[in-house]
């Protein structure tokens, strides 16, 4: 009932898995489709049944693609409220890999679903785990209030998450964000430390955002 797109096309993902791994994924998807609550029992151990590691030709880990496909199967059978409750539960009791998969799943939600998982993004942004911070600044971060979103971008600069991971930077960068990035650069220079190249990326994004108004 809710649309959540997989990270990798299901047929393509299966081409990368072993025959046993692909069969295990089919079986888990079927279980979750029949009874969405089963995802709570399958999510943690899913990658042990399918395999883990980088997928050749994709900037995605197999374990993330597998878990997001399970989320997609659950979403298809749940309305927005029940899907949100399931995602909150999976995130609360997930290890870092499971939490990241939930965040990546939020980024693949159809915007028309109206589901707001910004509380999970804020939790992830309070951590210093760069894998979670990066996943929290994807498409779903459009639900974050401006101040939280700006601090999310600043946290990326601070923890070394490439701002290329920030969805919608070009559209949303504003004068306040550019000023925050510049103050961060001032502190680094005062300390004699290197200024990350991404500071310029953030400032330039704001310049481009405002260009039409300047013209």
């Amino acid at each position: 009932m809710t649309t959540l797109l997989p990270l990798v096309d299901p047929a393509e993902l299966r081409r990368h898995l072993s025959a046993e791994g692909a069969a295990a994924l089919d079986s888990m998807v079927a279980e979750v489709t029949a009874e969405p609550a089963r995802i709570g029992r399958l999510f943690a151990g899913a990658a042990r049944r399918t395999g883990r590691g980088p997928l050749a030709g994709h900037d995605v880990l197999a374990q993330d693609a597998v878990r997001v496909e399970l989320l997609a199967a659950a979403a298809a059978a749940l309305d927005g409220d029940r899907l949100r409750a399931e995602l909150v539960e999976l995130y609360r009791f997930g290890d870092s890999d499971e939490k990241r998969a939930v965040l990546l799943g939020l980024n693949r939600l159809d915007p028309s679903a109206g589901l707001d998982g910004s509380d999970l993004l804020l939790d992830a942004l309070r951590t210093n785990d760069t894998r979670l911070v990066a996943a929290a600044m994807g498409d779903h971060a459009r639900h974050l209030p401006d101040d939280a979103w700006r601090h999310g971008v600043l946290k990326c600069l601070f923890t070394g998450v490439p701002v290329a991971e920030v969805a919608g930077l070009e559209e949303r960068a504003d004068a306040e964000l550019a000023a925050m990035a510049e103050r961060f650069a001032t502190e680094r220079r005062a300390a004699g430390r290197e200024v990350p190249a991404d500071v310029a990326t953030v400032v330039a994004a704001h310049d481009r955002t405002t260009e039409p108004r300047k013209a």
Binding site: R48, G51, G53, L55
Partner: peptide
Amino acid sequence: NSILRGGRD
């Protein structure tokens, strides 16, 4: 194919 780790059980 990628050599994926795990998938044993």
